[in-house]
């Protein structure tokens, strides 16, 4: 079997949209992909400008045991319990790091590395120990399976069906994130850039920070089924870093999440159809493929522009 299958336009671009049934199925996948990319892109921009990209990575790993315990005790992937589980695990994680850092001779970075990996390991053990449970597949939690999102159960209110639960949840989280970003834009901007100024004019810098961390956890939990706890980090980091090679204002970088999200989703979807692989993985690969030319050719600090200015 060749490493890269033959590329045929028919198979990659036409076939997924050939029958009504396939179109309904794939539109759900695309919609979920867009919502995940947009939500994570917006949240991630704020994380990246605070120089906390690795923190996003760490947190998404550290909340895993919380997710596992929440799922095992309640038995559903509903966002409420999963979010509570994630927050509790995240807080415990934070507490353990602080404790190790202040009460032992372990330095902060080592303490972070230690705590997050042990939490992650605990999570993996819990999930694989309960592997008999079909809904909680370790592969799905870790890497997500966007292709199976249309299988999520339907939302039912008073006997009326409203469509896919996973997409509805993601949509609500997306709207919350957009509203939060608009309403608290100034607070987020100033506390990220100059926390001293923010504090001196009476802004609750710590509350803003905590709010952002909770939003990060919420976005991670909501995107879990689609992209998993590992690939979600790519969704957080790639859009804003790629956009920063073109724009020098935070507002433009935030807005770039939208076109980039469309490129990532459509690119990843069709790439996955070509290579017959995980859609979430293909989306992350697409993001990387778009990042490379941006980094080389981007007018705002790209490799070439730096070389020319010298």
């Amino acid at each position: 079997m060749p490493l890269i299958p033959d590329f045929t336009i028919n198979q990659v671009f036409t076939q997924p949209w050939s029958t009504t049934q396939l179109i309904t199925w794939n539109l759900q996948i695309i919609l979920m992909g867009l919502l995940v990319c947009w939500t994570c892109g917006l949240v991630g921009s704020f994380i990246v400008i605070r120089r906390m990209a690795l923190m996003g990575d760490a947190i998404s790993h550290g909340i895993l045991p919380g997710l596992a315990i929440a799922f095992i005790t309640v038995g559903s992937l509903g966002i409420g319990t999963m979010f509570i589980g994630a927050c509790l695990a995240g807080l415990t994680c934070n507490f353990c790091i602080e404790w190790l850092h202040t009460n032992t001779k372990i330095r902060e970075d080592a303490a972070m590395g230690l705590v997050f990996t042990s939490f992650f390991a605990l999570g993996v053990t819990l999930i694989s120990g309960n592997a008999g449970n079909i809904d909680l597949d370790p592969g799905c939690i870790l890497y997500g399976e966007l292709g199976l999102i249309p299988l999520a159960e339907k939302v039912e209110i008073n006997g009326t069906l409203f469509g896919n639960r996973a997409i509805w949840t993601m949509g609500v989280v997306f709207i919350c994130v957009v509203t939060g970003a608009i309403v608290f834009y100034r607070q987020l901007l100033i506390s990220s850039f100059d926390s001293t100024l923010a504090k001196s004019i009476g802004m609750p810098v710590k509350v803003i920070h905590l709010g952002l961390m909770l939003t990060l956890a919420l976005a991670t939990v909501a995107s879990l089924e689609a992209v998993g706890v590992i690939l979600v980090v790519a969704m957080f980091v790639f859009p804003s870093v790629t956009a920063s090679f073109f724009f020098n204002r935070l507002s433009f970088i935030l807005l770039s999440s939208f076109p980039l999200g469309i490129l990532y989703t459509l690119g990843g979807f069709h790439l996955a159809h070509w290579l017959d692989c995980s859609i979430a993985g293909a989306i992350a690969v697409t993001a990387t493929l778009l990042f490379i030319p941006a980094c080389l050719l981007g007018p705002n600090g790209g490799v070439c522009s730096r070389f020319m200015h010298r």
Partner: peptide, 28 residues
């Protein structure tokens, strides 16, 4: 108090323009 920090304590790669920074002075 208006505080002007030491130059090296500022993240100069931050995506803000000169105008954005000056407008931050009005946030209070």
């Amino acid at each position: 108090i208006g505080y002007v920090p030491q130059r090296e304590s500022v993240d100069w790669e931050f995506p803000v323009t000169v105008m954005d920074v000056v407008l931050m002075g009005r946030y209070g």
